[in-house]
Amino acid sequence: MAGGAATGGSVQSETYREARTWLLLPAWVTLGILTLAPLTIMLVYSFLTKEFRGGVIWEFSLAAYDQFFFDRGLFGDEPPRIEWTYIGIFWRSIWQAGAATVLSLLIGFPTAYFIAMRPQKERALWVFLVTIPYWVNLLIRTVSMKFLLRDEGPLNEGLMAIGLISEPLGIVNTNLAVQLGLFYSYLPFMVLPIYAAVERYNLALSEAAADLYAPRWTILRRIVLPSVRPGIVAGCILVFVPSLGSFLAPDLLGGAKTFMIGSLIEEQFKGNAGNWPFGAAASMILLTMVLILLILSARPSRKGVR
């Protein structure tokens, strides 16, 4: 019984070898037409000349990538230096999304484990309890989150009324507010994949370890966590990647004082700048970054106990 599940390695078999083309065909057709084709358009656009105020001119150009990596001063005629502006924006977004992911994992894992260990008939109810709030639109959730966190909102007034704090925490328009907003936006995307994995976890493994006098937190760290690793990885991806390109939480909760990747790219298509090739190039760079990240996370885990 133990084997695959205990080591956390992905179970693979060749059961459906002959059918694989047919199994993959729907995904290939749908995504090939609806994602790959539009994305190819964007890839092409990133190498074209920008048309002033939006659109492209069909002439090859590396200007968009040049703008991303090299700083030529306010007027564009100084000798090129490394451009830190956009790297800074990317770094800040990664940091925010990373913090939101860690926060989601810290809250999401115990929740998922707790739900998966409920009696079978109760589990669905708990899962729905976690997902029901997401029937309400993201924008409304974000706005009401802001309302709750405001200096004169219920949270601060409640804490002041019971004397825990003497003046408002001043959360709105800070990085913390953005992280809380992202966390709130995507929490079920962490809980559900982990739940689906833990639900499958064979508790006998934990019990065997306990019989050998392993402390319970060691069991959690050494046995449970590696076994449900695919669920955790899936959850982290589903929270981290959308957070990276999100701009609702940064705009509404963070005050939009600084660009995030999402708002930077949006500005290129919907803002004054109207620089489509640059927006396309920034997306391609983001895409490459995330792809590398994904490939790293998809590598099989190191087996055995450290």
Partner: peptide
């Protein structure tokens, strides 16, 4: 995974 990785506006 591709749709996940592209910012929505793009």
């Amino acid at each position: 995974s591709l749709p996940l990785m592209v910012p929505e506006i793009v």
